[in-house]
């Protein structure tokens, strides 16, 4: 694992015994199962601002998110894709999708096993887009759900929190989205184009990770593991 990461190729880590690859896009890849997992896509977050608040943000966030998702699928050719909840920003999001976006989603869900995990933004993911809607999913040593559960949860892979981390090196602060794992549990960064990050030092993360964990920060060409003690 160390050699691979140092060579700047693959960022790999063990989560409850499962060897996962952390991709720059924010997706995690489980080669053994040919399984790709993404969190917090927040489709149509942009148009939700227009619908609810009259704020006309550029309506390109869904296609941007889909383009990144298509690219990841093209690279890894997954047999299974799991979207870890909050895939749709609100209950009306599916209704606001454009024709192109609908076609993209159907093409993505059509070619493989696709699971929409229920999130707090989308307790009932739409059923007409392909894939299965489930509350959670267990697969070997890993359990996939949206909200990380309190207490010891070996093998939990969750989203919801949109982790981001900061390091200060030579007086310069760098803040990046990140994967966080203590080897037992994994929390994925948000994948959606308009989603922000929450610092891993925020109280919301309290109790979810062992005192020593790693933030796998997403850089320009690589994902860099940074020990929790080095975060600022």
């Amino acid at each position: 694992m160390a050699e691979a990461a140092a060579a700047g190729e693959l960022a790999t880590a063990l989560v409850n015994g499962a060897g996962l690859v952390f991709d720059r896009s924010g997706a995690a890849w489980w080669p053994e199962e040919r399984l790709l997992v993404v969190a917090d896509l927040h489709f149509e977050k942009g148009s939700s601002f227009a619908a609810r608040r009259g704020v006309l943000l550029p309506p390109y966030d869904t296609r941007e998110t889909l383009a990144r998702l298509e690219a990841a699928c093209a690279v890894y050719r997954p047999k299974t894709v799991i979207a870890l909840g909050d895939s749709f920003h609100d209950l009306g999001a599916a209704g606001r999708l454009g024709i192109d976006e609908l076609a993209s989603i159907r093409a993505l869900t059509g070619g493989r096993d696709w699971y929409w995990i229920e999130g707090n933004h989308d307790p009932k993911p739409p059923e007409n887009l392909g894939g299965w809607c489930v509350a959670m999913l267990a697969c070997g040593p890993l359990t996939f759900r949206h909200l990380p559960q309190q207490g010891d949860q070996p093998g939990e892979v969750a989203g919801h929190l949109h982790p981001a981390a900061r390091v200060t090196v030579r007086g310069r602060g760098l803040r990046r989205r990140c994967f966080v794992t203590d080897g037992s549990r994994l929390i994925l960064p948000s994948f959606g184009a308009y989603t922000g990050g929450l610092d891993v030092r925020d109280p919301a993360f309290a109790g979810l990770l062992a005192p020593r964990f790693h933030a796998w920060m997403i850089g320009q060409d690589r994902v860099y593991p940074v020990a929790s003690g080095k975060l600022s």
């Binding site: 390091v167 760098l174 060409d221 940074v226």
Partner: peptide, 21 residues
């Protein structure tokens, strides 16, 4: 932005690697 930022990230990561190895 650019390469130097990446070098800084790599530097932290490398230190981590040393500890690991």
């Amino acid at each position: 932005g650019g390469e130097a930022n990446e070098d800084l990230l790599a530097e932290v990561a490398d230190e981590f690697m040393e500890i690991l190895n």
